[in-house]
């Protein structure tokens, strides 16, 4: 069997599960959950340093960017300028060009502003960034992102942090079919089985934060997601049986007494 490699933006990843590092009780729980998830890529946000509280622990005390790939995001940015400013700072900080772009359009739904997202993608690609893009599940807009040089298309399953799972399987399937770059379902996954469904449909990966961090036992849920993603991927590669309307006996009828 040929090895089932997951390559995104020129990087080979062992896991098809990418996890977020927000919303955890503390950094120790974040680090343990990331470990249990088996992810080799994590998303991080860029924020002001709390200059008054020097003793407060920081994320990089618990997660080492040399051991795990940091994917800086633009969470909280509502226009292209804010997003570009954030990612340019991220590049200066870590020296890497792989980023997650999300330009939000609405505070209540956190739905992406696709016009600003496409514009920002174009600029970032020109500046040499490798851009993984959070987007709506509209196939035409997803194609537009790819045409503008996105390294990965990351359609939402449902609104960020909603846990509603994949709401429009048809659209996600259309995006998978047409895309030549990896398709990673980002946002809205609620539980492990949702991730399996996404992987069975043929997604290249999933990005999970709230479903793990907001679980009653986040570390155990991280493990559940690890297994769910592997299971879904294997199921996709194995190719499911055809659906039939009527029954088909599992035991042979020949030799029946």
């Amino acid at each position: 069997m040929t090895k089932d490699l997951f390559k995104v933006a020129g990087r080979s990843l062992k896991s098809r599960l990418i996890v977020g590092t927000g919303k955890y009780k503390n950094f120790s729980e974040t680090a343990k959950s990331v470990k249990a998830s088996g992810a080799d890529m994590v998303t991080v946000a860029v924020r002001r340093v709390n200059i008054l509280d020097k003793k407060k622990p920081i994320l990089t005390d618990y997660l080492d960017p040399k051991k795990i790939i940091f994917l800086p995001n633009t969470a909280g940015c509502f226009n292209s300028n804010e997003a570009l400013r954030t990612l340019r700072l991220a590049r200066e900080m870590g020296g890497w060009k792989l980023v997650k772009l999300e330009v939000l359009g609405d505070k209540k739904t956190l739905y992406p502003n696709m016009l600003e997202t496409i514009k920002s993608t174009r600029t970032l690609v020109k500046e040499g960034f490798k851009v993984m893009v959070y987007c709506t599940d509209d196939p035409l807009l997803a194609k537009k992102l790819e045409d503008n040089g996105a390294s990965a298309i990351m359609p939402l399953a449902s609104p960020i942090g909603s846990g509603l799972g994949i709401q429009n399987k048809v659209n996600i399937s259309l995006i998978i079919k047409q895309s030549k770059v990896p398709v990673i379902v980002d946002a809205g996954i609620g539980t492990a089985s949702d991730a399996t469904v996404a992987m069975e449909m043929g997604c290249d990966g999933v990005l999970i934060n709230s479903a793990i961090a907001n679980a009653k036992k986040p570390i155990l849920m991280a493990k559940a997601f690890k297994d769910a993603v592997i299971s879904g991927r294997n199921s996709f590669l194995a190719g499911r049986m055809a659906k039939k309307l009527f029954a088909s006996p599992s035991s042979p009828l020949k030799g029946l007494i």
Binding site: G22, P72, A90
Partner: peptide
Amino acid sequence: VEVVHFIGGG
């Protein structure tokens, strides 16, 4: 002056 760093995020 703005000083930023990485924090937890999704």
